[in-house]
């Protein structure tokens, strides 16, 4: 219950935050205008619409996850609002999980809005819509959850700026993890160990990418989908537990 009230309060905070609206409006404008511009390339029209549409939703969601996520905890410590929360019968991990869930709710609503925008364009352009599109959107949302948890973890031990850089790096490398192993194989022993380490520690974000499936009308089995979702949620749990352990030891000064 306490976690839920903190989550709802965080959601309310986000709703009253101008930054978020700016990002969201910007995202919708970008998605809309780039899709309209592409009317020229007739042959590959549908394919591009889906590709760019899903791609922009992904990028903008991640940006929101990072920029709101890094401030979630830091801002509370800087503004000392955390003093009156932690002195109440609320465990630190409850605070952390509450903040995380709050931003997750925000991201969920954002994803719905952006997906709504995409669907409008698709319908207007008479692109056939199948179930795979919704599965892809669902996994994009799971990816947001992972990125938010990374941002939250970083912000429990470092500044907002460094958190943003780390999280962005995790996002980029997370989409290249498959290459890490291949790349590592070509390097010396030290480099190989480092890259292998990164491969196992960083989330493999490409797993959440079903764009190709949507565009080429491929199928994903239900059990595979379940496995991917489970992977995301376990990863999030791992990140939140680590964040809680660090947060528990911290002095708020």
């Amino acid at each position: 219950m306490k976690v839920l009230s903190i989550a709802l309060n965080t959601f309310r905070e986000n709703l009253r935050d101008k930054l978020l609206y700016n990002l969201l409006v910007f995202a919708l404008l970008m998605i809309g205008s780039s899709l309209l511009l592409m009317r020229l390339t007739l042959g590959e029209f549908h394919r591009l619409l889906l590709d760019v549409g899903l791609g922009s939703i992904n990028i903008f969601g991640v940006l929101i996850a990072i920029f709101v996520g890094i401030g979630l905890v830091n801002k509370e410590i800087e503004k000392k609002t955390i003093y009156t929360i932690v002195s109440k019968p609320v465990a630190r991990y409850q605070f952390l999980v509450g903040k995380y869930l709050g931003l997750t709710i925000t991201l969920f609503v954002n994803t719905l809005i952006m997906a709504g925008g995409l669907l409008l364009v698709l319908v207007a352009q008479e692109v056939p819509i199948d179930g795979m599109l919704f599965k892809a959107l669902g996994l994009i949302f799971i990816e947001f959850m992972v990125i938010t948890a990374v941002a939250l973890l970083c912000s429990t031990f470092t500044s907002a700026t460094l958190s943003a850089i780390f999280t962005l790096a995790a996002y980029v490398i997370g989409h290249l993890t498959a290459d890490l192993k291949t790349f590592g194989a070509k390097m010396g022993e030290g480099g190989q160990m480092l890259l292998n380490g990164l491969y196992y520690v960083l989330p493999n974000l490409e797993r959440f990418n079903l764009k190709g499936h949507v565009i080429h009308h491929l199928e994903v089995s239900g059990s595979d989908l379940l496995l991917i979702v489970a992977y995301g949620l376990i990863y999030v749990t791992f990140l939140l537990v680590s964040a809680s352990i660090i947060f528990q030891r911290r002095d708020f000064r």
């Binding site: 309310r12 905070e13 000392k80 003093y83 009156t84 002195s87």
Partner: peptide, 18 residues
């Protein structure tokens, strides 16, 4: 003990959007 405690921090800041 926190349940039976009230605390006002020095020059307090609170959630200003509430």
């Amino acid at each position: 003990s926190k349940a039976k405690l009230g605390f006002l921090p020095e020059s307090p800041y609170f959630y200003d959007y509430l």
